[in-house]
Nucleic acid binder design. Structure first.
Lengths: 215, 215
DNA sequence: CGGATACGATACAGCCGTGTATCGGATACG
DNA sequence: CGTATCCGATACACGGCTGTATCGTATCCG
């Protein structure tokens, strides 16, 4: 954990603008395909600004990873109370599960950019073992937070996981991402929630059981 | 569908060597990150050979996509009889489903390279609408073949899908790929089948029902 | 065996991205 | 209001990749 020199507010704003730009460019061109100049153009800076703030592209990649997961964590934290209220007030088990699924899926905002950047960063972690450490660190924190949320939300509808909740999260995320990707490939007519809505409710049900029940 | 000029056997062998090399390089460096020279080096040629056989990198990408799906199709076709025999001789429902799942997962060979190249090509289709056409063409053929196989195999154990079998295939493939990716990121200790084995049997069961039964 | 041709290697020119070193202007402070 | 400092812009040198044009050679055929 490096001590964060406060530096000037101006500098911090520049860094933020560069990282925001990098996120967009990484999603669109891929981490490898993105050039420093692409990022500069997107941010409205020249290379001087970037090189005076970051050592090289790898440094930018690491910070983007961290910010990405942090943003997701914040998003989750902010929406947990919503879910709990919603689930608790559902009439039937089916309604509660459906609401739970919807909320989990929505909790992970899966638009074009998030999907692309998430996939891109994951693939990057596969290819570059030197980056997998920071990926795993932030990603595991994210998964565990989401798993805890899942268990709590399930308890609200009187159910509990039958497998490691982390595995449930992975499965749900995998299906959600695939759902969005298919829609993106199919073009404007594609429904980004089609696959999720078709299979996730049954999957969540199948991977949980009534808290007191046998199977 | 372009008419395939037979050309010489020598030329065809060169093309094959280049495409094999491209597959490896695309997996390792990404489609965008791969250079023509990378491919040449991997294939043991110089750029002259490549440029006399392919217009540019995009042409190579399209052919790699096509070959990749064709190889998977061949692999599936070759293993269907195996599965049917295996499933038919299973003692219990659980054993049959487990065998079915295993076979489906194994039917899609999910090693490092296949996973990387599959993800890479899919992302490429998202980013480049001009390539999405050829991706969808080959990919849909692949999905439908696999879906037909799934339905037939399910019938062998007296079950039928409760949702579009294409969605089941997508879900299974998404989970299988995520399973392998996690293992790759975690390094040598990671079990590429961990997530698949944990959730897929329940998922397949949940998305199917006895053929005569109500629910 | 000899010539034609197909095919891959080599050479070359141009462009693009990188990283460093220097410059100029905005901001902070006395 | 003037000066020092910070920070982003500009300039430059270098290396790598691309695509084309040319060359040399292996292969095919009479």
């Amino acid at each position: 954990m490096v001590i964060e020199e406060p530096r000037s507010a101006r500098r911090e704003a520049t860094r933020t603008r560069v990282l925001d730009a990098a996120r967009i460019v990484f999603a669109e061109k891929g981490v490898i395909g993105a050039t420093i100049e692409d990022i500069c153009e997107q941010a409205g800076f020249t290379r001087g600004a970037v090189y005076s703030n970051f050592a090289d592209k790898d440094a930018i990649v690491e910070e983007v990873m961290e910010r990405e997961h942090q943003a997701l964590l914040d998003h989750i934290t902010g929406s947990i109370e919503l879910v709990e209220a919603e689930v608790a007030s559902a009439g039937s088990l089916e309604a509660a599960v459906s609401s739970l699924v919807n909320r989990i899926v929505r909790t992970i905002p899966l638009d074009r950019q998030v999907t692309l950047i998430a996939t891109e960063l994951e693939i990057m972690a596969v290819r570059r073992p030197d980056l997998s450490g920071s990926f795993l660190a932030v990603n595991n924190a994210f998964r565990e937070r989401l798993a805890a949320f899942l268990v709590a939300a399930m308890a609200r509808v009187g159910r509990e996981p039958v497998v490691d909740p982390l595995d449930i999260i992975d499965a749900v995320k995998a299906i959600g991402e695939r759902s969005v990707r298919r829609a993106l490939i199919e073009g404007p007519d594609g429904d980004p929630d089609a696959l999720s809505e078709a299979v996730l409710p049954a999957v969540i049900l199948a991977l949980s059981r009534p808290i007191d029940g046998a199977s």
